[in-house]
């Protein structure tokens, strides 16, 4: 009897979770699903040929976009992992201060931060001057309007999104596992490789998603710091959407970008084997 009563209560309230989900579903429906469906419909105006045309016309831009995104993401890992590791293991009582320093530049808007790079990197500016003096750049070379300038700015702008998740995953590692490792005669490097690294991979995975995806769709850095030789997919869409006849192809380009990212993320999740997230 008690059991019946219990199921009775459960049955009466089966809809409660759905009610709670309703605002979220309505929001997603109105502002994600509907625009997506409309964009997909636009991308088919004039047939599936839009997809092949836009990929053929922009093959160089598409290749460049993913090279930029991959390079900037890897650079983020290369800079962000040691930084997060240092803060998590050696930060001591300064941990919060150091984390605040990582986030501090983000109190200034994205656009202004990027424009500030322009002032730093211009041909007659301090950075180029120093690099020319030490011989890294030739006398006629600069950083603005180069691949390196744009990739550098992308790395800078998205670095905290890499540092923070890696920090969180390193922070929650149980130190006793490392002690146990060294008790079993593992060298510090071996203990890092066998214990710390695998346990921090979910952080690297999350950080990669948070950097790679927005970088692949970014247009601000290439627009402000690059030239026509650094055009990314985002720039092509941003500059040409005003022309009515381009819209079907640009919608197709957006969908292609999304599809490639989705596939890349799935493959990446499979390779890294982080069941927790994927």
């Amino acid at each position: 009897m008690a059991r019946n009563e219990q199921t009775g209560i459960r049955a009466a309230r089966w809809y409660v979770p759905y009610l709670l989900l309703l605002p979220g579903i309505a929001w997603l429906g109105a502002f994600f699903i509907v625009p997506m469906a409309s964009m997909f419909q636009t991308s088919l105006d004039g047939g599936l040929g839009n997809y092949s045309t836009v990929i053929a016309d922009n093959s160089e831009v598409i290749r460049r976009t993913f090279v930029f995104a991959a390079t900037a993401t890897l650079t983020c890992i290369a800079i962000g992992y040691p930084l997060a590791y240092f803060i998590a293991t050696r930060g001591g009582r300064y941990k919060n201060v150091l984390l605040a320093l990582v986030v501090l530049p983000f109190f200034v808007t994205y656009l202004v931060r990027t424009l500030a790079w322009k002032v730093l990197l211009f041909d007659g500016g301090p950075v180029v001057g120093i690099l020319q003096d030490v011989g890294i750049l030739g006398p006629d070379e600069g950083l603005l309007n180069t691949d390196i300038g744009v990739i550098g700015a992308l790395t800078y702008n998205f670095l905290p999104f890499m540092v923070l998740p890696i920090y969180v995953s390193l922070e929650k590692i149980d130190r006793r596992l490392l002690e146990a490792g060294s008790d079993l005669y593992a060298s510090p490097f071996r203990a890092f490789r066998k214990v710390t690294l695998p346990l921090s991979l979910p952080g690297v995975f999350a950080g990669t998603l948070l950097t790679f995806i927005p970088i692949a769709g970014d247009f601000v850095n290439a627009d402000l710091l690059g030239s026509d030789q650094q055009t990314m997919i985002g720039n092509i869409i941003e500059r040409n959407f005003g022309q009515e006849f381009f819209r079907p192809e640009l919608s197709a380009l957006s969908f292609m970008l999304m599809a490639v990212i989705l596939v890349a993320v799935l493959v990446y999740a499979r390779l890294l084997g982080t069941e927790e997230i994927a």
Partner: peptide
């Protein structure tokens, strides 16, 4: 000309920035 590297950039309103900087 673009293929030959003639242009520093193809710009909108922001051409004045690089022009002011002397680049």
């Amino acid at each position: 000309a673009r293929e030959d590297g003639q242009f520093r950039d193809v710009t909108g309103n922001d051409y004045t920035e690089d022009l002011q900087l002397g680049d």
